[in-house]
Amino acid sequence: MKKKIDFLFAGVGGQGTILTSDILAEVGLRCGYDVKKSEVHGMAQRGGAVESHVRWGEKVYSPLIEEGEADYLLGFEMLEAARWPHFLKPGSVALVNRYRIMPPVVNLGQAKYPEEKEIETILSGAGARVVWVEGAAKARELGNLALAGVVLLGALSSYLAEPAEVWQTVIEEMVPPKFKELNVKAFFAGREAKL
């Protein structure tokens, strides 16, 4: 009997939440889980807040996670991570990329971007353990900010039992061939980071 694991991805349109969550879904399928996944395309992708739900389990009905049920939150952007405490389960892990994209209201001076401490308080208030991931910094080191999501995925993989080879195979199959090596490097950078 496979344990149910719910993953919530949060980020800004264009950050690559869709591809990384696709990779996670495929890893689940290869490891024998029933898998469902959901997200919204279109209007929401033009720099707006986006979220993806990935669910692994013996038998999964809904493609959407229920409030208070997510085991892992993958925050691609700090403010976006802070938006979802109501989905987190006590004892869950929130992996947050230390990276800020200012929303227009903040740019216009009409609102304040929350401090790192506030974000931690919001997420830990839901009983989650907050883990900061230097996804953006590692991605920059590798020369492409778009790799931050795969760094996060690597960090997530270190919490799960599924073998690294499965992750690597799926990543190699699903990313554009040109960026295969870089993505694998990014994955292991995340997986091997001391969190």
């Binding site: 707006g48 208070g68 109501h86």
Partner: peptide, 18 residues
């Protein structure tokens, strides 16, 4: 009935022209 924390009030991020 599960205890679920409420969604926080944070600056919104609507979609924008690229």
């Amino acid at each position: 009935l599960k205890k679920v924390v409420s969604a926080p009030a944070l600056p919104g991020r609507p979609p924008m022209l690229c």
